[in-house]
Design a protein around this nucleic acid. Structure first.
Lengths: 190, 190
DNA sequence: ACATTAAAGTATCGAGTCGAAACTAAATCG
DNA sequence: CGATTTAGTTTCGACTCGATACTTTAATGT
């Protein structure tokens, strides 16, 4: 009946949320800005952000409009698809992220004993994965841990995404991707 | 620059948040309802809820009004202080909490290996405590772990709150309290 | 005692969030 | 080439939240 751990997650998130009215931005704007920083080039679109946040495209469109108006994000046209928009962090946006209010939580995490930190990371990752599996959500995991990631494809473009058949730099491979799918597990008969 | 763990907490909270539009209630209403269930008699007031959630009294007053209007919570007058309101869960409120959308996360947590679960709980508790310490917030911890908790005070009223000089039942001692203060650590000279 | 101050809670307003639905424009499918 | 799908925007209405002003009751100070 008492649900201690879910309550802890909820309260931690609320602390961040309450902090996130600072710096001239609002909580959802901070979330969007963080996403744009971390998303790879297949994922830096309003649509992918909507999937990530679990919001409708219309809502996200509003948030982006505000961030673009403040000069923190740029809406660049896309060559391949003239409907699509590529979201890019501006220099000002990058500067703003240095005062990200979530940093206070990150500082507290960094101050924890390494054992606590590692076990917490593993447990939270497992939990998130399980919850997303239940609802068929996308994990938005790190590129290099994807089943379609091919290391050292050729010189010049070190790695490869075998799903989209695109070259990947080392930086690319540390970003999150909407297409990311974990390494296949041993198939079972279910 | 990449902040993995804080991002995980944020995303987990967002999943719960996105789920919390169900059951005819809104996210903040679910949070308030959960609080009323878990708060002891020194903490079941709009003011304490505002402190817990980090919101203003006015905001909380609105949420309570809605919950009372739906018949999930009762605003009982207080004998000792005629300004104060005591929030009580109604039978309907208790019934509603059985469909709490946060339960899905709790189910996933319960399905984790026991080791993951225990270490996660410890780490999250430490993290929350550190963050609250930084901002001078109240921990709202469990009554029985409070420095003012006296076990087995006398027969009939098994325990005692030595801060408020009030008797505490066994049930009381498992609820959260706005006055809760952790057991004093061994004093150091800092 | 009695005026002052503090505290618990409410009411109102404005900026912002969010989902739903209608819409535009571009790409894809058949 | 026409029909459908997809990326994204706009508009609307219900709701959240902080700020502020307010009422009622309790505590405090002289």
């Amino acid at each position: 009946m008492v649900t201690p751990i879910s309550t802890l997650v909820e309260r931690l998130a609320r602390l961040v949320q309450n902090d996130s009215h600072t710096g001239g931005l609002l909580p959802s704007q901070w979330e969007a800005l963080r996403y744009v920083e971390r998303a790879n080039r297949f994922s830096s679109s309003p649509g992918a952000l909507a999937v990530y946040l679990g919001l409708t495209k219309g809502t996200v469109s509003q948030t982006i409009k505000v961030l673009a108006g403040k000069g923190l994000v740029r809406k660049a046209p896309t060559l391949a698809d003239r409907r699509a928009v590529k979201l890019e962090l501006t220099a000002k946006g990058r500067e703003t992220l240095k005062n990200d209010p979530i940093q206070e939580m990150q500082d507290c995490i960094d101050a924890l004993p390494a054992g606590d930190r590692n076990s917490m990371e593993t447990a939270l990752e497992n939990l998130l994965r399980d919850m997303l599996k239940n609802r068929l959500g996308r994990p938005f995991g790190i590129c290099r841990s994807c089943r379609y990631f091919r290391r050292d494809h050729e010189t010049g473009a070190p790695h490869l995404c075998s799903l989209l058949d695109e070259p990947l730099s080392n930086d690319d491979s540390n970003l999150i991707c909407i297409e990311q799918t974990e390494e296949a597990e041993h198939p079972d008969s279910s």
